[in-house]
């Protein structure tokens, strides 16, 4: 397990790259969902459904 994390001395680089990738991908995925929820809420408010 330790070996896996260290990546033959390159762990710092490999994992930081993967971390950045993961953050960007998650933001990309979550952001439109939040936005959609917001629009739906706003529209229902406007239509007097809530």
């Amino acid at each position: 397990m330790n070996e896996f994390i260290e990546m033959g001395g390159y762990g710092k680089f490999v994992w930081s790259a993967y971390a950045i990738w993961l953050i960007v991908m998650v933001i990309n995925y979550v952001q439109p969902m939040i936005r959609e929820k917001k629009t739906v809420n706003e529209l229902s408010k406007r239509l007097g459904l809530k």
């Binding site: 990546m7 033959g8 001395g9 390159y10 762990g11 680089f13 490999v14 790259a17 993967y18 990738w21």
Partner: peptide
């Protein structure tokens, strides 16, 4: 692991 670059080449899978 890559014989030249060691484990650092694994970045390739996202790069």
């Amino acid at each position: 692991a890559d014989y030249q670059q060691g484990d650092s080449f694994r970045i390739i899978y996202i790069h």
